[in-house]
């Protein structure tokens, strides 16, 4: 399987913004926050098709997401994930004494994960509980 070193950016999209107001259980929200926006060239490198699953791994964890072609390209070797529980699974908790974790520009490795499933919100929450 091809792999690629990338930087993860997390942020707001209008869909995520709409979705969070409609409820964290709404389809609009849940559809948006599991997307991994990838540069089309990188999609090719990774031999990824639209909507196939990918695994993103950082020093702080890994998470399975749905790959989509970024509408905001080009941004080679950068992936974009909306703020949300999935993005939080891989973000950097170190605050460097500021209180602010590092949520943008986290080094990560991305690989296709056609055989792995995107966890549901409940499963994700259960996972946190288990870790606790």
């Amino acid at each position: 399987m091809p792999k690629l070193d990338v930087l993860v950016l997390t942020g707001r999209t209008i869909e995520q913004g709409k979705g969070k107001e409609m409820g964290k259980l709404s389809k609009v929200y849940l559809d948006d926050v599991v997307q991994c926006n990838i540069d089309p060239q990188d999609m090719k490198t990774l031999k990824l098709k639209q909507n196939t699953n990918v695994k993103v791994t950082t020093n702080f964890g890994s998470v399975v997401l749905k790959a989509v072609k970024s509408p905001r390209a080009p941004h080679p070797k950068m992936i974009f994930i909306s703020y949300g529980p999935w993005a939080s699974m891989i973000s950097d908790p170190r605050t460097n004494g500021t209180g602010m974790p590092s949520l943008k520009g986290i080094p990560a490795e991305i690989e296709p994960a056609p055989n792995e499933r995107v966890l549901s919100l409940q499963e994700l929450v259960n996972q946190l509980k288990m870790e606790a």
Binding site: K24, F60, G61, Y83, G84, P85, S88, M89, S91, D92, P93, P101, V125, L128, K129, E131, A132
Partner: peptide, 17 residues
């Protein structure tokens, strides 16, 4: 607010604890 959705997992898991 919804910190469990937005905090890094290292922090969220201790909220759960």
């Amino acid at each position: 607010s919804d910190p469990v959705a937005h905090f890094p997992r290292a922090a969220s898991k201790n909220i759960a604890k």
